[in-house]
Amino acid sequence: MLFLIEWVTIKKESDTADKTILSENTSFFDTQEAILQLKAGDEATFKDLVLKFQNKVFNVCVGMLKNSEEAEDLAQEVFVEIFRNIDQFNAEAKLSTWIYRIAVNKSLEHIRYNKRQKRFAWLTSLFGADEDLARNYSDFYHPGVALENKERAKVLHDAIDKLAENQKAAFVMHKMEGLSYQEIAEIMQLSLSSVESLMHRAKKRLRELLNDFYKNDS
């Protein structure tokens, strides 16, 4: 019995050591073993996954939504979906790519939902619905931006809001999450040249919007 307990302890320690070594070189979650453990419903592996990706997912969500509370709620939804649909992950892409894809899709869905709510806010207000439906995010400051850049970041965020969905997603992932064009292409299931074109058009449109903003401001 004592031998068995010792063996379990040693096995757990060696498993943790394996994960640490892997995380220094490649991610443990890129391995088949991790996928199998997640599919088997291993709670410890799922916890490790959440701890590793929680800030990445939250950062994408907050960049897209401009609201910390909603972004955290959405980040939770992303992990709930991962937990429920891990069986559908076919390992064609990396797990991280799949997670980012869910985060981006959920964020876009949420933005569309908010737009619909705003459009019908006048109607729902007739029936005494919560005024929260017509939310205004103009006072949002990204928590990761340096103090001296806060005002400029806010102006940029407002301009990003006016971009087309795809351009917005690509720009946020590149600028805020620091993902390469290749990674963005895999997440958005586009070719590399399409992402380059998206980013080029996004920057061009942002320049136009910012130009207009500063012309009217001065």
Binding site: K47, V50, L51, Q54, N55, K56, F58, N59, V62, G63, S68, A71, E72, A75, Q76, H142, P143, G144, V145, A146, N149, R152, A153, V155, L156, A159, K175, M176, E177, K203, L206, R207, L210, N211, Y214
Partner: peptide
């Protein structure tokens, strides 16, 4: 100049972090 500085506002930004006890 303002436009270029604004476009660079996200450079070197830190990643936003979730509140404690997210899990």
């Amino acid at each position: 100049d303002k436009v270029e500085k604004t476009l660079a506002a996200f450079d070197n930004m830190e990643r936003a972090e979730v509140k404690p006890f997210f899990y």
